[in-house]
Amino acid sequence: MTASADPAGRTCGTLAGVNEAERQALELAVELAARGAGTVLPNPVVGCVLLSPSGQIVGRGWHQRAGGPHAEVVALADAGDAARGATAVVTLEPCNHTGRTGPCSQALIAAGVAKVIVAVRDPWPAAAGGVDVLRAAGVEVHEVGDTDSPAEDVNRVWLTATRKRRAFVTFKAGMTIDARVAAADGTSRWITSPESRADVHRLRGEVDTMMVGVGTVLADDPLLTVRDADGELVGRQPLRVVIDSPGRTPSDARVRNDDAETLIATAAEFGHGRRVDVGAVLSELYRRGRRHVLLEGGPRLATSMLDAGLVDEVVVYIAPLLLGAGRSLLDGSAVDTLTAAHRAELVAVDRFGPDVRLRYTVRG
């Protein structure tokens, strides 16, 4: 990657009631939280920084894996006795829930933390309430309350999935400058650069589910696995989901091999008439503990999901190519006038070799 930018200006900026040391600590907590992407699902990414009364960092931590210690507990252990009287800056409300770990709200109280700055309230009812418990114990609590904050963005997958009770969907595609994903003869390997393809496998490694339509399976016979530059499997493999209303996925399709678990979603199981109800699939994935779907094709499935309000963000890799003909990024939309267009906000711009990667949040 040779360049990176955040056109949305997602820094913590000037926050009411937060001093400069606390603002910088919140930015660091967001960076720490991001380190848990891909390893904490189905849990949230969380970062925590502890500041001494003079504003010095005395502890830091992040949630590293599902079932492991939470960010606050890691930061408290890092700080030791210096946690007493400190300020804890946390990207997500400290949990008030006993699961595989104890409640972080109680851990902060027991450590003698004097103040807690909370960037985002926890929307999961079972774990919420940490702010109230802290205040009842005499701990000063300041809520940032910025719905467009970096803390919201870094944890967008878990927050959105929890609020909507369905898996978060990232639509990913590689395309030419004129939005073609394949040439007129059907060839599509390779539109994007090796650098972009390596980043796609990094992204695959951060999700717990990958999804395609049966048309993509029939046309490309993809593996839908996380691999290194030599084609070897790397790390935990996401669940592979094929949206296949009539059940046309061949028995010898590579997506059916033993490299990863696969779900063939047919109308018989997830039916809405003769078609798969993709919303029902996403809800079922959530019920099964899946939180992040990487939608990789094809154009008709992506379009139908976009029209149904089931796409949360779009990541596109744009190669410096022009075709003028061939398969488009989207196909078959119900949108027939400009005023009905789906709106998106550009969140990040990155460069990979000769390609540009754009990340958009879909607003409606």
Rank of each mutant, 00 (worst) to 15 (best):
A88S: 07
P299E: 12
A110H: 11
D228Y: 04
V113D: 06
V113K: 00
P222H: 02
R357H: 01
R10G: 02
S193L: 08
A37F: 10
Q64M: 08
L263I: 04
V40H: 00
E232Q: 15
G138S: 05
Q64D: 14
A167T: 13
G47R: 04
T160Y: 02
V255T: 04
L310I: 11
A5G: 12
G145K: 12
L282A: 06
P103N: 12
A229G: 10
A83W: 06
N257L: 11
V139C: 02
A126F: 05
G298N: 10
R84S: 14
N19K: 06
A114S: 14
T170H: 11
A267F: 05
L76C: 12
L306W: 03
T225S: 15
G231R: 09
R163G: 02
V255Q: 03
G36M: 01
D331A: 13
L26F: 08
Y286R: 13
L295Q: 00
S52G: 10
V217D: 07
T337S: 14
A325M: 06
T39V: 07
V356K: 05
A25K: 02
V73E: 15
Q237C: 07
E143S: 09
A66K: 07
L92S: 06
D221I: 08
D259M: 10
T98P: 00
V278F: 03
A3G: 10
R300I: 14
S304M: 12
F270M: 11
G129E: 08
V118W: 03
V89W: 03
C95Y: 00
Y317K: 08
N43Q: 13
E152C: 09
E345W: 04
G324V: 09
L233E: 06
R60Q: 15
R10H: 06
R248Y: 08
D252M: 04
L306T: 05
L282C: 11
S333F: 01
G9A: 03
P299K: 04
G326H: 06
D259Q: 14
D132S: 14
A29R: 00
P7D: 01
R274K: 11
S188G: 00
D221M: 07
D78Y: 10
G80N: 09
A126K: 10
L15G: 01
G36W: 04
T209N: 01
S333G: 13
A127H: 06
A128S: 13
